[in-house]
């Protein structure tokens, strides 16, 4: 994040052409707060299991794991779960979306699974993630962290931990990106103006 703006809400024109709703500092603060909230509510830290939904969930889950280590000195497993093969729109689209990595390092049975995603919209990705998760075992509970909740839910799914609520137009695109497109460096969440026939990134 190269922007000098102390308050990104007031930044009407970031370099990428959309409006920045969370910059790297805001994202880090939100993840620290969420880590505290999870620890506050969780009675058995050994059973925590962070499951990131790629691509955006991965750096967020890693940061949460680092925060757990820092706050409570616990090592929380981080898994990555691609939901593409569980999507509900595959039957109506001829063009197949790209698959992403799935890497579940340990069994999910009897674990408290925390799904981590960057932007929540319709709830369909979380539905798919829950179905995928059940194929890996039987977690004792499943909770959801979303960095940004942009509204427009189409399924009865709510977030347990929210970084920030961001009201949006349905056709706007909200995406999390890193500097120069990589997700390992500084992150930001940008709302892009809607395009006709926009594709990707809407959740």
């Amino acid at each position: 994040m190269t922007s000098q703006q102390p308050n990104p809400h007031l930044n009407p024109k970031p370099p990428s052409g959309g409006r920045v709703v969370m910059d790297d500092v805001a994202i880090r603060r939100a993840l620290m707060r969420i880590a505290h909230e999870v620890l506050e509510r969780c009675e058995n830290l050994e059973r925590l299991y962070l499951v990131a939904i790629p691509n955006g969930g991965v750096p967020l889950a890693r940061q949460l794991a680092a925060n757990f280590k820092q706050i409570a000195d616990v090592d929380v497993v981080v898994g990555v779960l691609d939901t593409t093969l569980y999507r509900d729109d595959l039957k109506i689209k001829a063009e197949r979306p790209r698959l992403r990595e799935t890497e579940m390092p340990s069994a999910v049975d009897d674990r408290i699974v925390i799904l981590v995603d960057d932007v929540l919209k319709t709830g369909r990705t979380i539905r798919a993630a829950m179905d995928a998760l059940m194929d890996f075992g039987r977690p004792s509970s499943v909770q959801v962290v979303g960095l940004v909740d942009r509204g427009h839910r189409e399924l009865p799914i709510k977030l347990d931990y929210v970084g920030k609520n961001v009201p949006t137009q349905p056709d706007e695109e909200v995406r999390m990106s890193g500097s120069e497109g990589n997700l390992d460096g500084a992150l930001e969440v940008v709302v892009m103006p809607g395009e006709p026939e926009s594709s990707g990134g809407t959740r």
Binding site: I92, K93, A94, E95, K121, T122, R124, S199, G201, T202
Partner: peptide
């Protein structure tokens, strides 16, 4: 899921609405 173009059973769009 791919079919000959013009087949009414398929939407050839490439949207990724999740």
């Amino acid at each position: 899921g791919r079919r000959q173009e013009g087949d009414p059973r398929v939407d050839l769009g490439s949207g990724e609405e999740k």
